[in-house]
Design a protein around this nucleic acid. Structure first.
Lengths: 214, 214
DNA sequence: GAGCCTTCTTAAGATAGTTTAAGTTTTTTT
DNA sequence: AAAAAAACTTAAACTATCTTAAGAAGGCTC
């Protein structure tokens, strides 16, 4: 690790301005939120930098935070007794993620959330989010739209799972999420599709390549 | 069809009071809604009686309404080109249902919604619901909680679908929805679990009976 | 650059789930 | 009550997907 002359010193680095643009734009997308509300919102956010493979949440822990991905990408997954992973969702930049059931109901987490690469996130706690929703109807609207979208997305996924073969599910996944699909390993995609990595490899080998190479 | 002396005459029948108790209690469960808001809400509801097998919605139609099941039970499902059905959800009494993705985004329906038995429902249109949400933050909260619950329910289902065998999924379904499970045919349950009726029959024949009979 | 660890590939054998089809039972309609 | 329709059962043959295993390729670490 070189340390060139143009890099900030450690104290400057720690204090440097946090970029709230993206998250504010994200929130503003679903509701018109006034200045005062936005300032309150920002004051509740905690910024964190995660190295690759860091675990933001693990099964059994209290799940107190809702996470916004500023940069990088996260993955939420469950693991059964045999260690088999089931990927619940991927969260690329500009997405929100948590173990929503446990977050909302104050249960111990049933999921793991890991950083797929070095990532920067904002988090807001359940208590603070509740305050926000109580105080500002426009945040209530924002969160409602988030839940709506999450619900309909899950429902579309359920339809795919019920009606399509593994091969079709793979095609559907790549069509829906072409950008993130290229960043993921086959193992990760397989665990989202509910098949083994070996079988996904066979599917890809046979049918269409993801990267278009021959 | 006999017409005994104690039955109301046709005009009395048509005019008889509609029972709003259950739906008001349902809405009140997630948000404290004042008198004025409740009256507005009631004024937007349309009551309908459906015979068994009636189709409330079919693929390709405009999906303009959100449905509350007052009595009876509904089923929402998709059908692929080959006619294979995938059941998205069952809606017993006191549940809300619609093709949410198409309802919210003004698309043509991709689902069918049918009455499993004679049912009574209330419906509210998208336009009217939007008005309600704009005007009363407490309805915004109510709908937000509905979407939250729907989302987490779908997510739990996705976990089951990814991690469990058909036999385990069946056990999980019966454990989660013991009442409605008893009202459904095996064919309907199979289409919810994503397996064939023949295979479900084999599972039940082998393992535990649903009704406890030997 | 060598070694190590994880991912990807391939393939053979095993299992879970489907298909087809015929017969039986139950429910619905007349 | 009879007829018709739908649901359920069983079983054999088939297909999709899993398991195991071993080798090859790619990416990190020292």
């Amino acid at each position: 690790m070189s340390c060139g002359a143009n890099e900030p010193r450690a104290d400057e680095f720690a204090m440097r301005m946090i970029d709230y643009d993206a998250i504010l734009k994200n929130v503003g997308r679903h509701a018109a939120i006034d200045e005062a509300a936005m300032e309150h919102f920002i004051s509740l956010l905690k910024f964190r930098r995660l190295p690759r493979k860091a675990l933001l949440l693990r099964e059994g822990q209290a799940c107190r935070n809702f996470y916004y991905v500023h940069s990088g990408a996260l993955r939420a997954y469950c693991m059964d007794k045999k260690g088999k992973e089931a990927t619940i969702m991927f969260a690329p930049a500009d997405w929100w993620v948590t173990d929503m059931f446990c977050f909302l109901n104050g249960r111990k987490a049933m999921m793991y959330i890991e950083a797929l690469e070095e990532s920067e996130i904002f988090q807001i706690s359940k208590t603070q989010l509740d305050q926000l929703l109580d105080r500002w109807p426009t945040f209530e609207r924002w969160f409602r739209v988030l839940m709506q979208n999450a619900y309909t997305r899950e429902q579309l996924r359920a339809i795919d799972n019920l009606s399509l073969s593994a091969e079709q599910r793979y095609a559907s996944f790549v069509a829906k999420y072409p950008v993130i699909a290229r960043q993921l390993t086959q193992k990760q995609i397989a665990s989202y599709l509910g098949i083994t990595p070996e079988f996904l490899s066979a599917i890809i080998g046979k049918g269409g390549r993801r990267d278009g190479r021959s």
